[in-house]
Design a protein around this nucleic acid. Structure first.
Lengths: 116, 116
DNA sequence: TTCGATGTTCGTGAAACGTCGAACAAGCTA
DNA sequence: TAGCTTGTTCGACGTTTCACGAACATCGAA
């Protein structure tokens, strides 16, 4: 499909990261990806239309939170855990903990019983 | 003037906190307040009209990040550092560090040479 | 009481956001 | 080739956000 711009490590901006994490759907996606496993696009289950999901994944990518890889017609997405740790140490960890405390984004999950 | 709703500790929502922190002016305000000192409204210097500043301070208050106290015609604002620590441990610390790394919100400061 | 200072609220407008369905592009598969 | 699947892109729409100036309310000072 196309370019899919990923920001460099040094280009990851705090404001955009925060903005990306201020939507429940996106927070849910981050939570699903938090185990570090790469996920196929189709495994993700969220209560929105596919165009909307595409939009949210793009916001996450543009903010530098995730990396998208393409293989044939499919996309795979991963959390940029190490990059985030390098750029803003501790941020991801703390936010993930906070997500659980507040139970944000639980509406997002994986298809059926896929866990790992 | 009026009510000025402050959320209870348990009502502080992660999504709103993140949303509040996704604006440079508000991040700057948080940074100024990060030393824990209470600040008079008039000490704050930000490149926006006063009605806009009022708006931002309201967003921070509604999100549970700050507490506003009134005395006569003046308002004083403080970071709810302890409450935040209790609700989302480590979050504020990490975000403050990230703010410095990315130098966000440096356009906001205190009037003249006021430091403490 | 009158004035000035301080913040809030209101009305407005521009921009951004979240959402959707439809149309499109690209790659498998038959 | 034709058709299916997958994901992106494109308006469109309504909501929310940010910004401003003007008007208002409140209090302290003159």
């Amino acid at each position: 499909m196309q370019k899919a711009h990923h920001p460099e490590l040094g280009e990851i901006a705090l404001i955009e990261v925060m903005a990306a994490l201020s939507d429940p759907i996106r927070v849910g996606l981050v939570r699903v990806l938090a185990d570090g496993h790469e996920r196929g696009w189709g495994q993700l289950r969220a209560p929105v239309a596919k165009s909307t999901l595409s939009h949210h994944l793009r916001v996450l990518r543009d903010a530098g939170l995730t990396r998208t890889r393409q293989e044939g017609t499919r996309c795979y997405v991963t959390l940029r855990g190490e990059d985030l740790q390098a750029r803003f140490p501790g941020l991801l960890q703390v936010v993930l903990s906070a997500m659980e405390i507040d139970d944000v984004g639980s509406q997002v999950g994986l298809r059926d019983g896929e866990d790992l």
